[in-house]
Amino acid sequence: MANRKRNTKPKGRINRPEVSDSPKPSSSPDTPDLSPLQWTPYARAIATVLILVYLFVVLIGPLANPIASKYFSGPIARQLAPLHRILFLGHGYRFFGPDPGPTHRLVFRGVKKDGSKFEGFFPDRRNQNPRLLYHRWFMLSETLFVEHANQANSNFLKNRQVEYEQQAARLASENRTNQLRQLKLDRQLELRYYQRASERTDFLANSVARVLLDSHQATSIELFSQERSIPFPEEVADGLKLNSEQLLLPPIKIGELDTHGYRAANLADPNTLRGSK
């Protein structure tokens, strides 16, 4: 009742009430806070609209990332992307979801200027301290793994091209022009996706290789992504250490850098380099 009475006060620019020095009860809907309202109804109306729009922007982020609805959150998230980028919002917040998975480290092997060979990996808890710095290296190795895995190998791309051509020929023969147009658009998007994934991996891997090459005063360096699987509890109970070599899968080559520049590994056959015969 008292609240409604307050709201019917004559409208001024801003009502500045006397405020006691002691803290007001904290924001909780269950403990009605009966302090007077400071803002005019007009100011509150504008703030309400801004708050609602902002909360929608916040909510669309995790609704569209990592999985988006093609008909709702996806298109809206694309429109709101500038706001998400400006304010660094739009994250998925799926911490350790859907399942805690295996981790990945980046292994590098190279040859120094004096001809000696060297090998290393990151993240490396012995040499990367404090822990937050170690975690940055860890996230970088995970990003390299994810970006490398996002690429499509040449065999996959060839198969997809064959599938696309067959589908396009069928739609053309059936005179289904709308579906054919959509198919072409989807195909363009798909090719662009894989091309971008490949470019991103190459840029990132090239930079990482160059920094490692310089820091080790090397002439050539190879990068590999190596997965560490999660042990079964029974294995650990039987004495297996978490840092055991047994848990490491064979490293997968990402690429190499030498005096000729950076060359990515062939995804279909990691023992060869992309573009090599």
Partner: peptide, 15 residues
């Protein structure tokens, strides 16, 4: 509206 005003626009200490 009273509930909304209470929720968003009441005074709050800075503690």
């Amino acid at each position: 509206t009273n509930g909304w005003n209470q929720f968003w626009f009441q005074l709050e200490a800075p503690n």
